[in-house]
Design a protein around this nucleic acid. Structure first.
Length: 555
RNA sequence: GCGCCCGUAGCUCAGUGGAUAGAGCGCCUGACUACGAAUCAGGAGGUCUGAGGUUCAAAUCCUCACGGGCGCACCA
């Protein structure tokens, strides 16, 4: 199947090379013949180094091998010229007029250009963010949200069926702790002084005070002093649901939505964790030691065995987690992808081990660690501490930086790379932000189109062969590459490539726009350049929308 | 100590075994009587942390060292 005009050329050239090699008696070189877009423009549009790779196998010097391929591309209407360069590279230059037809390809399907079927309809469950409902989301959650959301959008575009899920840890000890914190804040509302005796490990954040006021408004009869430890889980559950709803609202504002908010509490209530224990026991992967029940994770490559049932009889978080993953596989997903935070390094082996122990295909479970976002104010490192109650919330980032700049910034870097985030935000808010550079392309084109409509110039048929300037060619090539950028983003789970591409496309357009004029040209050239500009606009809008970023018509 | 991630320009970061390693910011020099200057053109700035190895070819793969981050609970 043909992905794009560029891909069509690539496949045709490859076939010709292989056919010629075959005629020369060289077979089995299929894997070596691939055509890449070179970094340097002087090296043509597509380049291959197969001759260098095949040299030892065919016992021919690379350039000698290439010499025997002479004329392989004759009659291909996509190819302008073929050159042998350096120690044995083959550089192919495409015919500009042929390449220019990409504009027609795009304008024929502006909203779906770049879509593909490489996903083959396979079902993917993407779990991301899954922030604990015990406090505000921090910036790394925003990073996971932006990355997960963009992966979901791009993977859908290239033919996967993507289901988005947020796992809510609304059960367990931390919820009781949250209830404890709420109880103390209720006492505080009743006039009690609680700060000096605040227990270690109980969330001190100011947001709990707001929750306490909300709770008081809903339940005016509940006095702080009458609350006991037995009430903590219920109080905590109430608070967790409030916080979770807040997360949902914040994420929706950030243009991130989920198909399902998967509740740990509901999972526990269903009895699924006990069934998991039963299955592990039947398979012989549970042992009793020190009064607790352990999963023999070391048999599956983990560092140590893991406690499943504590000596007090309660479950560790790991049992519902295992049950959750079993549930994912039971629902028939072909791929299960978890985007986890930087504090989960040790967790990857563990969850993989239990998935394998339960008999699921562990190679279909993919865990991506979204790396830490270090916060700086100027040169100074901002220490984040949930315990100390000092941290910068995702909400603050959205408000201060704006959604578009924040999303673009978070998507520019490889997710597994730790990144620094300067809270001075001058770059984020100001015109130097790269997202404005990209959005400005659309604003400029919209402006040109408005003026063209006012001109009421007669329309003439579009002759794309008139697009011959180097700046135009650069744009044509980038437009032709867009579909494979999306595939790369999806397959490598690497959204930064899309951000990079959008910046390159914007740079090429700005360069074209400063150099050449569109409207005050002969009608034929004007029409061709308008078509080019519209195609650039379509890809600009599409790329930005896949990043969850808007394309304003005026800025 | 063990594990995972990372180390590329002054800063923040891209980089698919391939040819002369890129972008943005910052710095310097230029460009609007101009479809939008939130722009463009040009310049300075690099022992790709180091040492070995594999390869015709290494920033990229392997090993070791060094530096940084994060993990290593009967917390989640």
């Amino acid at each position: 199947m043909v992905l794009s005009r560029l891909d069509e050329a690539r496949q045709a050239i490859r076939q010709r090379i292989l056919a010629k090699l075959d005629a020369l008696g060289f077979r089995g070189l299929d894997d070596l013949v691939s055509l890449e877009v070179p970094t340097e423009k002087e090296r043509g549009d597509l380049t291959t180094s197969f001759a260098l790779k095949a040299a030892s196998r065919v016992k021919l010097a690379p350039r000698e091998l290439l010499a025997r391929l002479e004329g392989f591309a004759d009659g291909l209407d996509s190819v302008e010229r073929v050159e042998v360069a350096g120690p044995g590279f083959l550089n192919v230059t495409l015919r500009t007029a042929w390449l220019a037809e990409v504009v027609r390809d795009i304008l024929g399907r502006p909203d779906t250009y770049g879509n593909a079927t490489v996903g083959q309809g396979r079902r993917v469950l993407l779990e991301y963010v899954s922030a604990n409902p015990t406090g505000p989301m921090v910036i790394v959650s925003g990073r996971a949200a932006a990355v997960g959301d963009t992966l979901a959008r791009v993977m859908s575009a290239v033919g996967y069926q993507v289901w988005r899920e947020f796992y809510v840890n609304d059960a367990g000890g931390q919820i009781a702790t949250l209830g404890h914190a709420l109880a103390l804040r209720l006492r505080e509302l009743d006039g009690e002084e609680v700060e000096s005796t605040w227990p270690e490990g109980v969330y001190p954040g100011a947001y709990i005070k707001d929750l306490a006021r909300a709770y008081r408004a809903e339940h005016p009869e509940v006095r702080g002093e009458s609350v006991t430890a037995a009430d903590y889980p219920a109080l905590g559950a109430w608070a967790a649901e409030r916080i979770r709803a807040g997360h949902e609202a914040t994420l929706r504002e950030f243009r991130v939505t989920f198909d399902r908010w998967f509740s740990e509490r509901a999972l526990r209530a269903s009895g699924a964790p006990e069934k998991i224990l039963q299955r592990l026991r039947e398979r012989g992967y549970l042992v009793e030691r020190d009064g607790a029940l352990w999963f023999t994770a070391t048999r599956f490559g983990d560092d140590k065995d893991r406690v499943m049932v504590k000596s007090d009889g309660s479950l560790t978080y790991f049992v519902p987690d295992a049950a959750y993953h079993a549930d994912k596989f039971d629902r028939g997903f072909d791929y299960v992808i978890d985007l986890l935070g930087p504090d989960h390094h040790g967790y990857v082996q563990r969850i993989r081990a239990v998935v394998e122990a339960l008999g699921y295909p562990a190679d279909r479970l993919e865990v991506l660690i979204i790396q830490l976002v270090r916060l700086l104010r100027g040169k100074e490192l901002v220490r984040m501490s949930k315990r100390g109650g000092t941290f910068v919330a995702l909400e603050d980032l959205i408000e201060e930086a704006g959604i578009d700049p924040a999303r673009f910034f978070l998507l520019e870097r490889a997710p597994e790379t730790p990144m620094d985030f300067d809270l001075n935000l001058a770059k984020l808010k100001g015109p130097d932000n790269p997202v404005y550079y990209v959005q400005y392309v659309g604003a400029r084109i919209h402006s040109v189109l408005r003026q063209w409509r006012e001109m009421k110039a007669p329309e003439v048929p579009v002759d794309l062969a008139l697009l011959r300037e180097p700046e135009e060619r650069e744009l044509l090539m980038l437009l032709a590459r867009f579909p494979e950028v999306l595939i790369r983003v999806a397959e490598e789970r690497a959204p930064q490539h899309l951000a990079k591409f959008m910046t390159e496309l914007a740079g090429a357009f700005h360069a074209f726009y400063r150099q050449h004029r569109i409207l005050d040209q002969a009608p034929e050239l004007r029409q061709a350049r308008l078509a080019l500009a519209q195609a650039v606009l379509a890809v600009n809008i599409r790329g930005l929308s896949l990043m969850g970023i808007e394309q304003p018509e005026v800025m």
